[in-house]
Write a protein that binds this DNA or RNA. Structure first.
Length: 119
DNA sequence: CATCTGACGACCG
DNA sequence: GCGGTCGCCAGAT
Protein backbone atom coordinates (compact mmCIF):
# COMPACT_ATOMS: atom_id res chain seq x y z
CA UNK A 1 0.00 0.00 0.00
CA UNK A 2 1.19 3.47 -0.75
CA UNK A 3 1.42 5.58 2.30
CA UNK A 4 2.37 8.44 0.08
CA UNK A 5 -0.89 10.24 0.69
CA UNK A 6 -0.36 9.97 4.40
CA UNK A 7 3.12 11.35 4.26
CA UNK A 8 1.93 14.13 2.07
CA UNK A 9 -0.62 15.25 4.59
CA UNK A 10 1.71 14.87 7.53
CA UNK A 11 4.22 17.02 5.75
CA UNK A 12 1.61 19.73 5.62
CA UNK A 13 1.02 19.85 9.32
CA UNK A 14 1.97 23.35 10.41
CA UNK A 15 4.69 23.82 12.98
CA UNK A 16 3.32 23.74 16.47
CA UNK A 17 0.30 21.69 15.48
CA UNK A 18 -0.51 18.03 15.94
CA UNK A 19 -2.89 15.52 14.46
CA UNK A 20 -4.15 12.22 15.77
CA UNK A 21 -3.89 8.90 13.98
CA UNK A 22 -7.63 8.57 13.91
CA UNK A 23 -8.22 12.02 12.49
CA UNK A 24 -5.53 11.41 9.95
CA UNK A 25 -7.08 8.13 8.89
CA UNK A 26 -10.49 9.69 8.69
CA UNK A 27 -9.34 12.64 6.67
CA UNK A 28 -7.76 10.34 4.15
CA UNK A 29 -10.41 7.69 4.45
CA UNK A 30 -7.95 4.95 5.16
CA UNK A 31 -9.61 1.59 5.18
CA UNK A 32 -7.91 0.34 8.29
CA UNK A 33 -8.78 3.41 10.26
CA UNK A 34 -6.37 4.66 12.88
CA UNK A 35 -4.38 1.46 12.66
CA UNK A 36 -3.48 2.04 9.07
CA UNK A 37 -2.44 5.56 9.91
CA UNK A 38 -0.22 4.12 12.60
CA UNK A 39 1.25 1.61 10.19
CA UNK A 40 1.97 4.39 7.80
CA UNK A 41 3.87 6.30 10.44
CA UNK A 42 5.72 3.22 11.53
CA UNK A 43 6.91 2.85 7.98
CA UNK A 44 7.73 6.50 7.69
CA UNK A 45 11.26 6.88 6.41
CA UNK A 46 13.17 9.23 8.67
CA UNK A 47 15.25 11.92 7.14
CA UNK A 48 12.72 12.76 4.47
CA UNK A 49 11.47 15.89 6.13
CA UNK A 50 8.36 14.18 7.37
CA UNK A 51 7.26 15.59 10.74
CA UNK A 52 6.04 12.26 12.02
CA UNK A 53 6.37 13.56 15.56
CA UNK A 54 3.34 15.75 14.97
CA UNK A 55 1.13 12.71 14.96
CA UNK A 56 -0.05 11.49 18.33
CA UNK A 57 -2.88 9.50 19.83
CA UNK A 58 -6.43 10.70 19.80
CA UNK A 59 -6.04 12.05 23.30
CA UNK A 60 -2.74 13.65 22.55
CA UNK A 61 -0.81 10.84 24.05
CA UNK A 62 2.43 9.59 22.66
CA UNK A 63 1.78 5.95 21.93
CA UNK A 64 5.07 4.91 20.46
CA UNK A 65 7.81 3.29 22.47
CA UNK A 66 11.24 4.42 23.37
CA UNK A 67 13.43 5.85 22.28
CA UNK A 68 11.12 7.49 19.79
CA UNK A 69 8.66 8.63 22.40
CA UNK A 70 11.24 10.82 24.07
CA UNK A 71 12.44 12.09 20.77
CA UNK A 72 8.94 12.97 19.68
CA UNK A 73 8.29 14.80 22.90
CA UNK A 74 11.47 16.73 22.58
CA UNK A 75 10.80 17.67 19.00
CA UNK A 76 7.30 18.85 19.78
CA UNK A 77 8.42 20.95 22.68
CA UNK A 78 11.08 22.53 20.55
CA UNK A 79 8.31 23.56 18.19
CA UNK A 80 6.37 25.27 20.89
CA UNK A 81 3.87 22.53 21.56
CA UNK A 82 2.85 22.31 25.16
CA UNK A 83 3.29 18.90 26.66
CA UNK A 84 2.02 17.75 30.00
CA UNK A 85 2.98 14.40 31.37
CA UNK A 86 3.78 12.83 28.04
CA UNK A 87 0.60 14.27 26.73
CA UNK A 88 0.10 16.94 24.09
CA UNK A 89 -2.31 19.75 24.69
CA UNK A 90 -4.65 18.77 21.90
CA UNK A 91 -7.07 21.32 23.16
CA UNK A 92 -4.92 24.03 21.66
CA UNK A 93 -2.86 22.21 19.09
CA UNK A 94 -5.26 19.92 17.32
CA UNK A 95 -4.98 20.64 13.64
CA UNK A 96 -7.55 20.15 10.97
CA UNK A 97 -6.32 19.58 7.44
CA UNK A 98 -7.58 21.96 4.81
CA UNK A 99 -9.67 20.65 2.02
CA UNK A 100 -6.95 21.61 -0.36
CA UNK A 101 -4.48 19.69 1.74
CA UNK A 102 -6.50 16.63 1.04
CA UNK A 103 -5.16 16.38 -2.45
CA UNK A 104 -5.24 12.67 -2.12
CA UNK A 105 -5.46 10.58 -5.21
CA UNK A 106 -5.47 7.00 -4.20
CA UNK A 107 -6.84 6.82 -0.74
CA UNK A 108 -6.47 3.17 -0.08
CA UNK A 109 -9.61 1.26 -0.91
CA UNK A 110 -11.40 4.51 -1.49
CA UNK A 111 -14.11 4.69 1.02
CA UNK A 112 -15.39 1.88 3.06
CA UNK A 113 -18.98 0.81 3.48
CA UNK A 114 -20.84 3.08 5.80
CA UNK A 115 -22.58 0.67 8.08
CA UNK A 116 -24.74 -2.31 7.94
CA UNK A 117 -28.17 -1.28 6.78
CA UNK A 118 -29.39 -2.55 10.06
CA UNK A 119 -32.93 -1.78 10.84
C1' DC B 1 -3.41 -19.88 2.83
C1' DA B 2 -3.43 -19.60 8.30
C1' DT B 3 -1.91 -16.78 12.19
C1' DC B 4 -0.02 -13.34 14.79
C1' DT B 5 1.07 -8.64 15.53
C1' DG B 6 0.59 -3.82 15.73
C1' DA B 7 3.17 4.39 15.94
C1' DC B 8 -5.16 2.94 17.27
C1' DG B 9 -9.72 3.87 19.01
C1' DA B 10 -14.06 3.10 21.36
C1' DC B 11 -16.06 0.85 25.35
C1' DC B 12 -16.47 -0.98 29.84
C1' DG B 13 -15.36 -1.67 34.75
C1' DG C 1 -7.98 8.42 34.66
C1' DC C 2 -6.08 3.73 33.88
C1' DG C 3 -5.99 -0.90 32.22
C1' DG C 4 -8.16 -4.82 29.78
C1' DT C 5 -10.93 -6.33 25.66
C1' DC C 6 -12.75 -6.15 21.18
C1' DG C 7 -13.05 -4.57 16.48
C1' DC C 8 -10.63 -3.10 12.19
C1' DC C 9 -7.16 -4.07 8.52
C1' DA C 10 -2.87 -4.53 6.39
C1' DG C 11 1.91 -6.60 6.68
C1' DA C 12 4.99 -9.95 8.06
C1' DT C 13 6.16 -14.82 8.85
Amino acid sequence: MSWDIVYRLVKQIPRGRVLSYGALAKALRLSGGARSAGRAMAATPTGKGIPWHRVVGERGKILIREPYASLQKKLLESEGVKITESRVDLNSHRWKPDKKSLAKKTAATKKRPRRAPQK
